[in-house]
Design a protein around this nucleic acid. Structure first.
Length: 558
RNA sequence: UGGGGUGUCGCCAAGUGGUUAAGGCACCGGACUUUGACUCCGGCAUCGCAGGUUCGAAUCCUGCCACCCCAGCCA
């Protein structure tokens, strides 16, 4: 697929230049998630960028957990993240935790103190905020800013020893309280978290380094050459460089920022996704409507389609929002090529073929793929009573309608043509069933003297299998659910994002493997839900519909 | 009102002073079709605005405008 086209973007250009100039002989990148939630499609963009670069330039990419805040993190997330990265098709060169470096980080902090570039500050959080100044006014220096090196060393050692309460003191970098860049106004380097049990280091530490101190040094310790992060860290780059410039770090990685992914009709922030899960708006992190990797996987998306999507959208510094259609195009392209075809009737309407022998079961053969014979065939069972979709019949319609009409003829996909003779209704006028006649001479060939334009799918009433089918739609009713002032994104949850129907499937579908994907002809791509399969239930999730130009024609009339 | 960014077709995105301003998605035609799918053919921009430099500018300069990010002991 189009995945083979090598992407090009400003970051790759920088890397190519660094390789060409000899600045680097080997490229090292890293994907550094904080294990405080599940990965989503936005992370996939970063994963594909970082691992893709390592792959294409003969380099290496590490997976590093940025676990410096014990309050928010959990092993549940580290395991899920590892699974998601592997599922996307990548294997890390090294698996690290920022917490692996806590001892070294502590030493680097001591080095800063010894150089007179860091100090222990006793200001309360509120005071720190006051002293920091505002966007337009410079801050004021902390009264503790000029403590002696000896006193700072002693205090920092005692912070580590657990002698002070949470919030009582912090270690701060001594930079410039008047800097127009807020991040340079003596940023906090370490804070005290005495009660915390860290998922990796347990109770070994009671002081924890901040991101701005940890990240550049973790990168340097791992020999990262290019540290790729999102736009909001642009203002942090001067601090990233400051840390590396003032400590004896083994190397100085280059931080490069790119725009994070925004997708229409969904939300991407961890906070909001967590809220959707915790408040029960969805069934979990792997709910097929979620933009999480776990959700997309359960929905039926393939790793190849997600990688392809990431390459299609590119990498720039422009803060934009990608249409869902791009993601959908990626999965359709993949599944069109790889998914076996099947027939499934989602809204069954019974059809009795009056001239078809009662009790007869005819076995027909149908190709699994119209353009790929290597995918083989499967058997279909035709009987006197079958189901077709209610949307495929109208008592009358104009010639643009190519399906079954009273008195009209259509082909049953992979079988014979039928003509509708009669519509049977109940007292309220609702159609109960259709009575049709088939032409026994039309199997595998066109009838003589007339052309049958329409083809509809069907399933034998007695041989087919019933199954639950979940029809998913976008989770929100607006392309920008969190873009409305004064409103919550929750106000725009789509009440119809999940519709459950009982469908009739062709017999071959009864043995579908968990997670197996198919194209239900004329309907869309579906995936057997793996979670329900574990319970022995036959449930299918709609991954995405087929493109539908007829719906557009119909929509215009309405 | 400070600092840092970004503005090329409806949405992404190439373009790095001389190209007819790539490509993808979407959209609009049309062909094909036992999936109104797929595939195939064709259509679809003068580059935020205004000046300037230049033989020549989306690409350089100046000035505007719009939008995003930053005042966590979060990442």
């Amino acid at each position: 697929m189009s995945e083979s086209k090598k992407p090009t973007n400003f970051i790759r250009q920088i890397i190519e230049a660094d390789l060409a100039s000899g600045k680097h002989r080997k490229i090292h990148t890293r994907f550094p998630p904080e294990p405080n939630g599940y990965l989503h499609i936005g992370h996939a963009k970063s994963i594909v960028l970082n691992f893709g670069i390592a792959e294409d330039y003969g380099g290496e990419c590490n997976l590093r957990f940025d676990d410096t805040n014990p309050h928010k993190e959990d092993v549940e997330y580290v395991e899920a993240i590892k699974e998601d990265v592997r599922w996307l098709g990548y294997e890390w060169a090294g698996l690290y935790y920022a917490s692996d470096y806590f001892e070294q980080l502590y030493e680097f902090a001591v080095e800063l103190i010894e150089k007179g570039l860091a100090y222990v500050c006793d200001l309360t959080p509120e005071q720190v905020r006051e002293y920091r100044g505002t966007l337009t006014e410079p801050g004021r220096e902390s009264p503790y800013r000029n403590r002696s090196v000896e006193e700072n060393l002693d205090l920092f050692r005692r912070m580590r020893a657990g002698e002070f309460e949470d919030g009582a003191r912090t270690l701060r970098a001594k930079i410039d309280m008047a800097s127009p860049n807020m991040n340079m106004r003596d940023p906090t380097l370490y804070r005290i978290r005495r009660g915390a049990i860290h998922h990796q280091t347990g109770d070994e530490w009671c002081i924890y380094p901040m991101y701005d101190f940890t990240h550049p040094l973790s990168d340097a310790l791992e020999g990262i050459t290019h540290s790729l992060c999102t736009l909001e860290f642009e203002d942090h780059r001067p601090l990233y460089d400051w840390v590396l410039d003032h400590v004896s770090a083994p190397c100085h990685p280059r931080q490069i920022e790119f725009a994070r992914l925004n997708l229409e009709y969904t939300v991407m922030s961890k906070r909001k996704l967590t809220q959707l899960v915790e408040e029960g708006h969805v069934e979990g992190w792997d709910d097929p409507r979620m933009p999480t990797i776990a959700g997309l996987r359960r929905r039926g998306y393939t790793p190849a389609a997600i990688r392809d999507f990431c390459n299609r959208i590119g990498v720039t510094k422009v803060d934009g929002t990608v249409e869902m259609g791009v993601l959908e195009a990626s999965i359709r392209e993949d599944l069109d090529r790889t998914a076996p075809r099947r027939m499934a009737v989602l809204d069954p309407l019974k059809v009795v073929i009056t001239n078809y022998p009662e009790g007869k079961v005819e076995t027909l053969s149908a190709p699994n793929h119209p353009k790929d014979d290597s995918m083989g065939t499967r058997e279909l069972k035709l009987t006197r009573e079958i189901y077709i979709d209610r949307a495929d019949f109208r008592e009358s319609a104009n010639k643009k309608y190519k399906r079954l009409v009273l008195g009209g003829e259509v082909r049953l996909r992979n079988a014979y043509t039928i003509v509708c003779d009669e519509v049977v209704k109940d007292d309220e006028g609702r159609i109960l069933e259709l009575r049709c006649r088939y032409d026994p001479h039309t199997l595998g060939r066109n009838p003589e003297g007339r052309k049958v334009r329409g083809v509809i799918h069907w399933v034998s009433a007695s041989e087919g299998v019933e199954a639950e089918v979940r029809l998913y739609d976008r989770l929100f009713t607006r392309p920008d659910p969190d873009g409305v002032k004064g409103a919550s994104f929750l106000d725009f949850i789509n009440p119809d994002s999940l519709k459950v129907v009982t469908a009739m499937l062709e017999p071959a579908l009864a043995g579908a493997e968990a997670g197996a994907r198919f194209q239900f002809e004329r309907e869309g791509y579906f995936c057997r839900d793996a979670k329900e399969a574990e319970k022995g239930r036959l449930v299918f999730n709609r991954v995405v519909t087929l493109r539908d130009s007829w719906a557009k024609v119909e929509g215009k009339k309405a």
